[in-house]
Amino acid sequence: MAKIRIPQNKVEELRQICKSFNYDKNELINVLHSAQKLFGYLPAEVQELVAQELNVPLAKVYGVVSFYSFFDMVPKGKYPVSICLGTACYVRGAEKVLAEFKKHIGINVGETSADGKFSISCLRCVGACGLAPVVTIGERVYGRVAPDDVQKILKDYY
């Protein structure tokens, strides 16, 4: 069992989450969603605890976490920037927008900036294709983003 480095009260909360799903193995993905909401990501200890509580081999939990792109094992930035690279956004130039974000924040996809402020990820369609290209920062959705808008958008977060 790995040393739990996560705060004890959160461990308790995680146990409660597992309990609220009746320790049902079928609910693993829902449990992981809740856990990720709680911790912001899914570090090894969290996966271990979930494995233990739901009585699923840890290997299988990790197998699931690494399968689904929604689950992260490293913390995201305070403002997670997601650029949609779905088809609609792609044909309307999302790649250029992505390049612009990478340039301005100075990190690559999947990375978090040194100050922990931004992280960049790509996603495939948030269903707002009508507004392509679409970028989300946290909960906020930006539509019809042109490369030139990027600097302006980022200003709000500095």
Binding site: P57, L58, A59, K60, Y62, G63, S66, F67
Partner: peptide, 9 residues
């Protein structure tokens, strides 16, 4: 034993 599982995709 459950040591091994497929990972990633």
């Amino acid at each position: 034993v459950g040591t091994l599982s497929a990972i990633n995709r």
